[in-house]
Design a protein around this nucleic acid. Structure first.
Lengths: 202, 202
DNA sequence: GCGCTTATTATACGCTTGTATGAATCGTGC
DNA sequence: GCACGATTCATACAAGCGTATAATAAGCGC
């Protein structure tokens, strides 16, 4: 059996993803993890820190992988295409997430969670991305005026987060046989959409 | 001074928009509304119903307005352009919302709130849209295969909700002088992006 | 197999939560 | 100006919350 701290992280990941930070109590987490209530103060101190660790456990490696991918793309000599950049930005998140449904949702939903504790953590962990992601996209869209670029970047984030969060809205409309579980298929559809959007005439 | 029930709805709208359903207590709402605690059970019964009424108060008129706009578009004889349909679908939500920041956020964020109570209400109120919105967009994108269309519809919802929710992410990146408060400007940038995405070659 | 660190347990504390209720107050038709 | 329905009020309740802690158990180098 996994150690208690790890089982707590697993349970926290799933529950926070499904019900949000304020929708889950510490007692619900320990019950799912089959762990004593005192284990939370012992291993993590506070609920907020448990949430933070559950997020960091996967988000930090993911961020590093994304940066590595982009670096490789740039090392190839010539400047990468818009599609390549979009792919490098989206693929790690989508793949990690499709290997692990809970974390995909957690990442997507936490990015939109208005709770101050969550917002604080998200800007903390994604401040490096705040500088990195736009910079790479900017290079691939050098011709766009600033204002236009930022509005389109806004659209990019919207699409990315909505796909990650996986609210099931599309299934409700398209029916159960519509499949969103394949990373390749998701990228195959999303990237052309976004690329066309970024390339739209001003 | 406004009656207590209305002030409760106003306070609920703002607070739920900023902190989420589970991030706000009834006591915080009555304090902001300058109303006695007992007024909530008296006028609304439960917290959940207060949330529901705060949502319905503006969401129902908005939905009706959207449907009217689309109907007018179709009455003009020839079938409307993709841009026209996108405009009719987005404009009421964005305008209502820019006249009332709280409700914009509330609508966008509630759409992504994972709390079961919220999900229940959102599908309840937006079931008519679930049939309506896609049908209109589908007509304007008749050439797309089903699977492609639904993935692009997914992107559409992502963009719409992210713009509504207004998380401030773009300001963090683009700086304070980047303005998202103008409805016209928002539509002017979002619609070409989405239209190009829907028109991307398969 | 003793000793010491690390982990787990049961339990308790003070506080906040949503909701309920009976008494006080208000507004208004007569 | 009084009576009566509609509202507002202070207060109470049980349940759940996050966190703390002292006692117990387990792991392990020696």
């Amino acid at each position: 059996m996994k150690p208690a701290a790890e089982r707590l992280l697993d349970a926290a990941e799933t529950l926070f993803a499904d019900y949000g930070y304020n929708g889950v109590s510490v007692r619900q987490i320990v019950e799912r993890a089959r762990v004593n209530l005192g284990a939370v103060p012992y291993h993590f101190g506070t609920k907020e820190n448990l949430f933070k660790q559950a997020l960091y456990r996967r988000a930090v490696p993911l961020r590093i992988e994304r940066e590595t991918l982009i670096r490789q793309l740039n090392q190839n000599g010539k400047s990468p295409s818009l599609e390549d950049v979009l792919w490098a930005l989206l693929e790690p998140a989508l793949r990690t997430s499709h290997e692990n449904d809970s974390f995909r949702k957690l990442l997507g939903r936490a990015s939109m969670d208005p709770a101050p504790e969550v917002r604080k953590l998200m800007t903390e962990i994604y401040n490096p991305d705040f500088l990195f992601v736009p910079k790479e996209l900017r290079k691939a869209c050098a011709h766009l005026p600033n204002e236009v670029f930022y509005w389109r970047l806004n659209c990019f984030y919207g699409v990315m987060l909505f796909v990650l969060a996986d609210t099931g809205k599309i299934q409700t409309i398209a029916g159960k046989n519509f499949d969103t579980s394949s990373t390749e298929k998701a990228l195959e559809h999303i990237i052309p959409f976004l690329a066309a959007g970024f390339r739209a005439p001003v």
